[in-house]
Simulated assay, not measured.
Amino acid sequence: MTEPTPEQTAAAQRKGLDVHHAARLRGTTAEELDADADAFLAEIATFAPPPPAPPRSGGPRGGDVDGHGSGSVAAGAELYRSRNPRDEDNEAKRPARPWWRANGYRFEGGR
């Protein structure tokens, strides 16, 4: 891009344009440069950036997440236990040793 003339730079400063846009201005007199600067400002005003998107809320939340509970770890653990009861009968049937030892499997790394 060519360097702006002092007249172009002065017109750009009078109209509040960035100095980098001064070389774009066309005209031989100060009035013509000012008119071109006004036209340029009107042209770039139509290309305004879109408004920012509203902040995301994270979506709907459950009743126990909105702070309606006591909010402690103990309250969360109690809620989990109430929703997921233990199966006492099935726990008695589990082998005392892990399955790989119950089946006689040995790790090759020792142990």
Rank of each mutant, 00 (worst) to 15 (best):
R81I: 12
R56E: 15
Y105Q: 11
M1Y: 02
A53P: 05
W100A: 13
A11N: 04
K93G: 07
A75L: 09
G67P: 01
P52W: 07
Y105G: 04
R61M: 12
L33H: 02
N84Y: 13
E88G: 00
D89P: 06
Y105V: 13
Q8G: 03
P95V: 07
D38W: 00
R106W: 12
D64M: 03
R94Y: 14
G67N: 04
Q8E: 12
R94F: 11
G110Y: 02
T9S: 13
V19Y: 05
N90R: 13
P4L: 07
H68W: 02
A102H: 06
G110M: 04
E91V: 03
R111I: 11
L25N: 04
A22W: 05
R94E: 15
E78K: 03
A53F: 14
V19Q: 12
P51E: 11
E108M: 05
G63H: 00
T5C: 07
L41R: 05
A102F: 09
T2K: 06
A53C: 08
A77M: 08
S82P: 00
E3I: 04
F40I: 04
A96R: 09
A39G: 06
D34T: 01
Y105E: 14
P95I: 08
R14M: 14
L79D: 14
E3Y: 01
R83F: 11
R24L: 15
V65D: 15
G76S: 14
R94S: 07
P49T: 07
A74T: 09
N90L: 14
V19H: 07
T46G: 05
A77E: 09
A39Q: 05
G109M: 06
A75Q: 08
G27Y: 01
A48I: 00
G63N: 08
